[in-house]
């Protein structure tokens, strides 16, 4: 069973439908006991990282999430939450993965948010990116990004280089929306579902 954490993000329905299309048995929950027992956990999220973090605190979920040992996938803001700090609202995050979330540097002819399909290059052969060709396209919508670090397994460039996919031990994340990234997004989700739990 896959626990999708009910972080109130508006992409939750899309995430649940995407998992359904892959035949996965997923439930939406904010119950720490259910989350702890799940075979895999997905942390979706859109909106501001600080607001999402507040919501996790209100639901008393921060300790539950940081102590998880099964595969965990953060999506978009859900991925950002895994890091230490976000410039957005000067927010402290879960600090499972060391790193900072920054705002895109404004430049001429660079629209913000970074919205649309962009290509990702892969840094290593992590099981999450299995079967994906170099420069696969994914759908992004965000104004803040995680910096490139030793945890980067997929990199994207939008004026600034940033981490599109990250992994540390059982914690993984993607800045794009796999649930809305057509076939390539489905490959990421499938890889996550097939990863040994």
């Amino acid at each position: 069973m896959i626990a999708v954490i009910d972080s109130c993000g508006s992409n939750i329905t899309s995430v649940l439908f995407a998992l359904q299309r892959l035949g996965a048995d997923a439930i939406l929950t904010s119950n720490p006991e259910v989350i702890k027992k799940a075979e895999r956990v997905i942390l979706p999220g859109v909106g501001a990282a600080g607001t999402a973090m507040e919501r996790l605190k209100e639901q008393d979920l921060t300790h539950c999430i940081t102590s998880l040992t099964q595969p965990v996938l953060g999506i978009c803001v859900g991925m950002q939450l895994l890091f230490t700090h976000s410039e957005e609202g000067n927010a402290n995050l879960l600090d499972i993965i060391s790193g900072r979330i920054r705002h895109f540097t404004p430049e001429k002819d660079k629209t913000i948010p970074h919205m649309g399909w962009n290509s990702v290059t892969f840094e290593n052969s992590h099981p999450l990116v299995k079967d994906l060709p170099e420069n696969s396209y994914f759908y992004f919508v965000h104004s803040y990004y995680p910096q490139v670090s030793q945890y980067t397994i997929g990199e994207c460039s939008y004026g600034d280089r940033f981490s599109a996919i990250i992994a540390r031990d059982n914690f993984m994340g993607c800045q794009f929306h796999p649930e809305r990234s057509s076939k390539t997004g489905a490959v990421i989700l499938r890889n996550f579902l097939e990863m040994p739990a």
């Binding site: 439908f17 299309r21 759908y139 919508v141 809305r180 990234s181 489905a186």
Partner: peptide, 11 residues
Amino acid sequence: IRKVARVIDIP
């Protein structure tokens, strides 16, 4: 809308 969201994998 729900029906579209269920089958469509693009935004």
